[in-house]
Amino acid sequence: MSVLIYADSNNGSLTKNALEAASYGAQVAQAKGGNAVAVVVGTANNIEQLGNYGVTKVLHVSDTTLDKFDPQKIAHVMATAAKQEGSETIIFAHDYSGKSIAPRLSAKLDAGLVTGAIALPNGNIIKKAVFSGKAFAEVEVNTSTQIISVLPNSVDKVETGGTAEVVALALELPSTGIKVKETKKESTELSLTEADIVVSAGRGLKGPENWGMVEDLAKELGAATACSRPVADIGWRPHHEHVGQTGIAIRPNLYFAIGISGAIQHLAGVNGSKVIVVINTDAEAPFFKAADYGIVGDAFEVVPKLLAAIKELKA
């Protein structure tokens, strides 16, 4: 019995989330005594590296029509591959691609789906975050086939040093009523959900002209930048930086909250972060209750000092 993994790529490279999903799938396979088989579609380079995360076979559908993202076609590929490999467990990353494909596959195979898993399954029971990270649920899958999508940055990747055999998979793709015309990527920016470190700031910074120090700090740390909702709503920062319950949910290793009060809706999107640092003038700001490290102080004084100290450390 094999575990099937969908490994997404971006501009020809496997994503970090794909490697995490592969490692998760390989660990599930090992627990069940089976093989981990990954599926890669479209143009993708260096896919043998999946072997290093425990995958033994990669099915590559090299059809370039799949370079344009079409979840309906990919769900068909996954259903075909699952049948061919006799897979009863199918793994995705809970990201932009997994959110589009996994539900389709679930309906296609009439198989139970658990999205946003944060731990390896315990038999048919999978733990996931619910209520925007304010609680966890253990969900049982009642169908023989189970589909799991893994929350990015929540399960450690295990490098096995193994190798994977790449096998071409040729199949007829269904025609669908959808066409990707263009993809506009701001490729210089680090994607928020994949970043290990995130530097985030709120209304305490007073205006968009003051974000220079936030960007400098982020740059020095190789971090992504984020913001609170009002900051995006007033237009100080782009909408895609808005984190929280109604923005993007993130789980970086390190989250800096600068001039953010720590409203419950903001915390909901960031409380999965491993280490939280809060910088706020108000010692009573609720964010300190969720923080690991805190500085009660003025961001305009603290952040430049912080930047200098980090530069010194890196030097």
């Binding site: 679930s106 139970g112 789906l113 658990v114 304010k134 609680a135 966890f136 253990e138 969900v139 939280i276």
Partner: peptide, 15 residues
Amino acid sequence: SNATSVKNFSLPAAK
């Protein structure tokens, strides 16, 4: 029929 069912909930450990 229900393909999944919640067995239990828990709260994260407080900081």
